[in-house]
Design a protein around this nucleic acid. Structure first.
Lengths: 107, 107
DNA sequence: ATACAATATCGTAATATTGCAATATAATAA
DNA sequence: TTATTATATTGCAATATTACGATATTGTAT
């Protein structure tokens, strides 16, 4: 087939997978990194910062946004993007919980 | 094109993206969840636990393993898989750092 | 209105992922 | 040896992702 069988998994599993998938590309990690370095929200500068064409960056931003990892607001004819802390909290908690739940090594 | 331009990004960015990508599928999150519920290492049971055929599960396990998220050891003719805490620590630290570095909201 | 700047969308080619049947491999048991 | 069990690999079809040129959209300035 090729399509993920999302319907067979729990909502939480799908949620974590969706967020992780959105972060599963170096360009998107680079965008997050960049948003963290500038404490003001940034718009077009991301295009100049990355070695990718404008439509490609736009597409990556769209995916980060649809996963809830960033927020974007119109500001004149530019768009102001920034980190959406709440979604990062969800995965942060997931990973903290994995570590906490991991028992002693067995292999 | 279609291939990711990994060479343009930092090693750390590629590392985080690679791990996130491996977690970007609900079946693989389900495998991790399952490994956490059983405090003994588990082998074939994963196949019975998931709504996927054995070759598909085998493939998902391979990806989790190659991303360093799980370890697998032969044990007779079965294989014992378990969480590799070290790799989870890497992403845990990444997310904790993102939260810590996030300044006040601006959008 | 016209021009310009910032961003998004469309269309398309290259590549990667997902899923599984069929088959192969490897260890153990009879 | 032969059978059985557990897992991996191969091959292939369906689908998704990545990247970008061309073009559209939207807001601001003149």
């Amino acid at each position: 087939m090729g399509a993920s069988k999302t319907e067979h998994f729990s909502e939480h599993q799908n949620q974590i997978a969706l967020i992780a998938k959105a972060l599963g590309h170096p360009a998107r990690i680079a965008i997050i990194d960049y948003l963290l370095t500038v404490n003001q929200c940034i718009c077009n500068d991301i295009v100049n910062e990355l070695p990718l064409a404008q439509p490609t960056v736009s597409q990556h931003l769209k995916e980060l946004k649809s996963a809830g990892l960033i927020k974007g607001n119109m500001e004149g004819n530019a768009i102001c993007y920034c980190i959406n802390e709440e979604t990062f909290d969800v995965v942060k908690n997931y990973f903290n919980n994995v570590i906490k739940s991991t028992k002693e090594k067995c292999c």
